[in-house]
Amino acid sequence: MLHHIELWVPDLDRAVASWGWLLGSLGWEPYQEWAAGRSWRLGETYVVVERSPALRTGAGHDRMRPGLNHLAFRARGREAVDALAEEAAAHGWRPLFPERYPYAGGPGHYAVYLEDADGFEVEVVAG
Rank of each mutant, 00 (worst) to 15 (best):
D11Y: 01
Y103M: 08
H109V: 11
G108E: 11
Q32D: 02
A90K: 14
E115M: 08
L22Y: 04
L7R: 04
Y113K: 05
R94E: 09
A83E: 07
F97L: 14
P102V: 03
I5V: 10
M64F: 15
S52A: 13
P102T: 02
E87W: 10
D13N: 12
M64T: 15
E44L: 10
H3V: 08
W34Q: 06
H91A: 08
V47M: 13
V112P: 01
Y103L: 10
P95Y: 13
L68S: 08
G77F: 03
E99H: 12
S18L: 13
M1S: 09
A59M: 03
E79Y: 01
A35D: 14
P10M: 07
Y31H: 15
N69V: 10
D62M: 03
L42W: 04
H3M: 04
R38C: 12
H91G: 10
H61N: 12
Q32E: 06
P98L: 03
A90M: 09
L23E: 12
P102R: 07
H61I: 11
A89K: 02
E79V: 14
A85G: 08
L7S: 04
A117H: 07
L22G: 07
E44T: 09
E115D: 04
S25C: 14
V112D: 02
P98Q: 00
E6L: 08
L96D: 11
S25W: 03
L7E: 04
H70K: 01
A111E: 05
P53D: 14
A117Y: 03
L12I: 02
E99V: 11
V122W: 06
